[in-house]
Design a protein around this nucleic acid. Structure first.
Lengths: 225, 225
DNA sequence: GAACAAATACCACGATCTGGGTAGCGGATA
DNA sequence: TATCCGCTACCCAGATCGTGGTATTTGTTC
């Protein structure tokens, strides 16, 4: 619906612009300065138009309903929810929504989760604006877009087993400096069970001890500090 | 880019603009999108002018020499060196340089080190552009500018003892998942000495074990993962 | 129903860490 | 000079962790 060449909003302009309708972009990011930058870059492209911005997940959904953008740029860390959850919310209502993740983080787990949740691309904020607008065009054209740098990162962990939900919970508690016994109390399980989870976590992450497990977990985007 | 009353030298314009000379701003940041945003915001202010940008420390020094900006916006994480080192390099040559840190990180240690190294202010990229331009004006006027949110963060750790250089080294190795014995080997000291350092680290950071020490160290900006 | 994964639980042993105390040495500072 | 701090080093004892093995329950999938 949103990617049809002739929606109610654009019909009039189509007479002049014919096929050359601008790509309507929605930007979701809580950093005002970055929003400014994205606005400037997108609007400087003759074939693009920034139709709205949102600074959190709820506003993102509202803005999407209102504008039905062709492409949505989505940050992963938002004040009220994760960008992935915002994306899921939008896509449950508009399954054809084309969403491009734009974030500072390159943990393979976040990338993987994003793509699994239906993202059409994954860009880093540190990449050149040129790449960003090119990605927007690719995604708008229905293609998927994952830069080589990120694809490599993903490939390196391709064969890794993912942590289970419970293991992630345990890892989070570990990062908080809790002993196995404390974690057992918090999660209402025995200390021995915590040890089993710890073992699996370290095996899967290739860590030699709990401290390295936390470090790797943070680097790969499994947990946040 | 240059929407200013274009000229290489501002002196001539002073005849017309009298006291009302624009604040000449240099922006140092490796994120192109953010640079765009900063450029847009700064140049939208009638009393400011972005005279240059740099994406790393070396370029920052060059650009400073070239433009002698009134205020420099400096990111802390640059590709070639830390923003603090870039600031030190600039200030060793131009001690009167007015530098405003603009970063995503709010670890008290980084804030403290920045101010100690001569920064006139400390801003977060997540803050409203309004605050940023206001900070630029304040710093230009010779005042120091630390937002309440950040000052609070600093105050909370005011009485904390800082880690020594050696302790930071040890903490870094800990984060790498090294055992005390391994660290001893790497740093050419005895395992017992590593233990002593560990004890001091945990005492100073208020950590219950090495894992929490790493977590706190990362949060407070003492080490990076 | 069988096979499998995930979560739970227990035991035991050796490795590692944490906490306590003591002490020498060099550099900075008062 | 005297004092303090940081780094170094050692010893000991108890706590915690890491590893190995075995086993039950539940839910899913073939």
């Amino acid at each position: 619906m949103a990617d049809a060449p002739a929606s109610t909003d654009t019909r009039k302009q189509n007479i002049k612009m014919s096929e050359n309708v601008r790509i309507r972009v929605l930007c979701v990011d809580d950093h005002p300065l970055l929003r400014e930058g994205i606005t400037a870059v997108v609007n400087s492209q003759p074939d693009m138009l920034l139709v709205g911005t949102a600074f959190n997940g709820h506003e993102a959904v509202e803005q999407f309903r209102k504008h039905k953008p062709d492409v949505t740029l989505m940050d992963l860390r938002l004040p009220d929810m994760s960008g992935i959850d915002a994306m899921i919310a939008i896509r449950s209502e508009f399954p054809q929504a084309r969403i491009l993740i734009l974030t500072t983080f390159d943990g393979d787990v976040e990338i993987h989760r994003s793509l699994e949740a239906g993202a059409r691309g994954y860009m880093l904020k540190s990449m050149p604006p040129k790449d960003m607008v090119e990605s927007i065009r690719q995604v708008h054209a229905g293609k998927k877009r994952i830069p080589a740098e990120i694809a490599t990162n993903l490939a390196e962990h391709y064969s890794d087993e993912a942590l289970t939900q419970r293991e992630i919970e345990v890892l989070r508690e570990i990062a908080g400096g809790n002993r196995n016994r404390d974690i057992a109390g918090k999660l209402f399980i025995s200390e021995e069970t915590v040890k089993v989870h710890m073992k699996h976590i370290m095996d899967k992450l290739g860590a030699s001890d709990r401290t390295q497990a936390v470090a790797i977990g943070v680097r790969r985007g499994i947990i946040q500090l």
